[in-house]
C-alpha cells in the first residue's frame, strides 16, 4: 500500500475582526478595527493510504474543515507541508483537482437553476469523460441512489437530501482517486443515509477510491470507516483503527426508556442510572461487562415499557475521555 496523502506539521492561523453590536460601534469599526488571531491547526501530521475510508472526527471548530479546505486546494496553510496525489494542493490547484472529488455539505456545487443532470453533463465535458464511460457510471450511481426522476428537476426545487445525493454523483462521475466528503449526511433521512453509506462502500470497493469523511455521526463512522482521525483544538488526538478506540472508549451505551406507567427505581449490575423520573429512565451500560440484551430483558420484565432508544455516547464525550486519560494520547 502506498500513501496517497502525506501531511506534515500543518499549521493555520486565522485573522478575524471583531465588532460589538450597535450603530456607534459600527461606525467606530469603520475607522478602527480590532483583530483576533485564532490558531485553527497547531501543527498536525498524518498519512492516508490508497483505498482507505477515513473518518475525520471532532467537535465544531476543531479544525476539520480547515484540513479539508487545505486538502481541497483553496486554503494556504500558515506553515507545513501537504502532498496529495503527488501535488501540493494550493499550488497546483487546476491539475490537482482533476483527480479529486469534493462534496461540501454547506455549499452549492450544483447549478442552482438547472436540473442536476445538466451539472452531470458539465462534469462529463469538464473532466473529459468518454460518452460510454459516462453513461454507464451515471446509470450505476443514479440507480443506486434513486435519482432517476429527481435529477430532471431544477436543483432549487430539490430536498436537502436529494441535493446531497446529486452532489455526490457530480463529485464521483470522473472517477477521482480521492474524495473528500464534508458533513455529507446532513439532511438525509434514515433510509437515505443507509443507501448513501452502502453506495460509498461499493464505490470504494469497486474503484479503490480513497474517501475522507468528516462527520458528527458516530454511526456513520462505524458503518464506513476502519480508520479514524480524531482532531480537537487544532491537534490530532487519535490516529488509528476504529476498533482499537472502540474497545477502549466506546464500551458504553446509553439506553433511554419511556414508561407507560410509573415504575420503581431501576437497579442492575454494571449499569449506571444517569437520570430517572416517573416516566423516564436513562441508563449508561458498560457493554464489556454486561450484554445490552440482558439489560433490556430486565427492563421489559420489570417495567411497562413504551419505548426504548439505544445510543452511543456523543463524540464529545469520547474526546473528553481521551483527554482525561494520562497524556492526551491513546
Amino acid at each position: 500500500m502506498t500513501s496517497i496523502i502525506t501531511v506534515k506539521n500543518l499549521k493555520k492561523v486565522y485573522k478575524t475582526h471583531t465588532r460589538k453590536e450597535g450603530l456607534s460601534n459600527a461606525i467606530k469599526s469603520l475607522f478602527n478595527r480590532k483583530y483576533e488571531y485564532k490558531q485553527a491547526l497547531k501543527g498536525i501530521s498524518f498519512e492516508i493510504e490508497e483505498g482507505e475510508i477515513v473518518g475525520f472526527i471532532g467537535p465544531n471548530g476543531a479544525g476539520k474543515s480547515t484540513t479539508i479546505k487545505a486538502l481541497s486546494g483553496f486554503l494556504y496553510p500558515t506553515s507545513g507541508e501537504v502532498v496529495s496525489l503527488g501535488f501540493t494542493p494550493w499550488k497546483d490547484r487546476v491539475d490537482y483537482v482533476a483527480n479529486l472529488g469534493v462534496v461540501l455539505g454547506q455549499k452549492a456545487q450544483l447549478w442552482w437553476d438547472l436540473p442536476a443532470i445538466d451539472t452531470f453533463y458539465l462534469s462529463k465535458d469538464v473532466y473529459g469523460i468518454k460518452e460510454s464511460t459516462f453513461k454507464s457510471r451515471l446509470n450505476f450511481m443514479v440507480k443506486l441512489l434513486d435519482l432517476e426522476k429527481v435529477m430532471h428537476t431544477p436543483v432549487r426545487d430539490m430536498s436537502l437530501g436529494e441535493r446531497m445525493k446529486c452532489k455526490l454523483v457530480a463529485a464521483l462521475l470522473h472517477n477521482p482517486k480521492l474524495v473528500l466528503l464534508d458533513e455529507p449526511s446532513i439532511g438525509l433521512d434514515v433510509i437515505a443515509k443507509d443507501k448513501f453509506r452502502d453506495f460509498i462502500k461499493l464505490v470504494n470497493k469497486k474503484y479503490k477510491t480513497t474517501f475522507i469523511i468528516t462527520t458528527h455521526d458516530m454511526q456513520e463512522i462505524e458503518r464506513l470507516c476502519k480508520k479514524i482521525i480524531i482532531i480537537n483544538n487544532g491537534q490530532i488526538v487519535y490516529d488509528g483503527l476504529l476498533k482499537d478506540i472502540k474497545k477502549k472508549y466506546l464500551s458504553n451505551k446509553f439506553i433511554d426508556v419511556k414508561l407507560e406507567t410509573k415504575g420503581e427505581k431501576f437497579k442492575l449490575r454494571y449499569c449506571k442510572v444517569v437520570e430517572q423520573n416517573e416516566y423516564e429512565i436513562k441508563i449508561e451500560v458498560n457493554t464489556t461487562k454486561i450484554k445490552v440484551k440482558e439489560v433490556i430483558n430486565s427492563l421489559l420484565s420489570n417495567y411497562d415499557v413504551a419505548d426504548i432508544l439505544i445510543s452511543d455516547p456523543p463524540i464529545e464525550t469520547i474526546i473528553q475521555q481521551i483527554f482525561r486519560s494520562k497524556d492526551g494520547k491513546v
Binding site: 450603530l23 459600527a26 461606525i27 469599526s29 469603520l30
Partner: peptide
C-alpha cells in the same frame, strides 16, 4: 446604516 458599515 449598521448593515452598510459591515462593508466599509
Amino acid at each position: 446604516l449598521s448593515t452598510a458599515m459591515e462593508y466599509k
